[in-house]
């Protein structure tokens, strides 16, 4: 197998990458196990029932609920569409669908293990605040120009 300038063959690079993934497998399997538990015990109906109809409260609730929820982003769009039909504010629905993909309670322990506790705390706090601000800015901009 051809070697690069550092003398590393592609086969060896492949083996190193595989070993890196294998060493992390217990952690990834743990996160997947948590995903299964959350998907089963935290239902769509439970998440939808959290919303109150108050736009300010619901935007916060949407961010928290989206952060707890796990699954395909597509599910959040469907659920978001249903919430809009129920009269839940666009701010809350935007926060919900955005938090669904940007925040993840189930992967926090793994993120902290891989990237450090301090980084994980900072990143998740920033992601939480960003999700709130992006939701508000999006709906506000849509109102002004839409």
């Amino acid at each position: 197998m051809k070697r690069n300038d550092e003398g590393l063959s592609f086969g060896k690079a492949l083996k190193q990458a595989m070993m890196g993934l294998v060493s992390m497998m217990p952690m990834i399997l743990a996160v997947i196990g948590l995903v299964g538990l959350f998907q089963t015990f935290v239902t769509k109906e439970m998440l939808a029932s959290l919303f109150t109809g108050d736009p300010v409260k619901d935007t916060l609730i949407g961010t928290v609920a989206g952060g707890i929820a796990v699954g395909q982003a597509l599910i959040s769009y469907i659920l978001g569409g249903e919430l809009l039909e129920q009269g839940i504010s666009m701010y809350a629905v935007t926060a919900f669908i955005l938090a669904w993909v940007t925040l993840g309670v189930v992967q926090l322990p793994a993120e902290a293990e891989v990237l450090g506790v301090r980084f994980t705390v900072y990143r998740n706090i920033l992601a939480f605040v960003s999700t709130l601000l992006v939701s508000i800015a999006t709906v506000w901009t849509l109102g002004v120009f839409g």
Binding site: S23, M27, V114
Partner: peptide
């Protein structure tokens, strides 16, 4: 090779046992 997250995996296994 050093495995990562064994304690977390054990905790999730225990959670499954409890839910079971």
């Amino acid at each position: 090779m050093k495995f990562r997250g064994l304690r977390l995996l054990a905790a999730v296994g225990a959670a499954y046992a409890l839910f079971y």
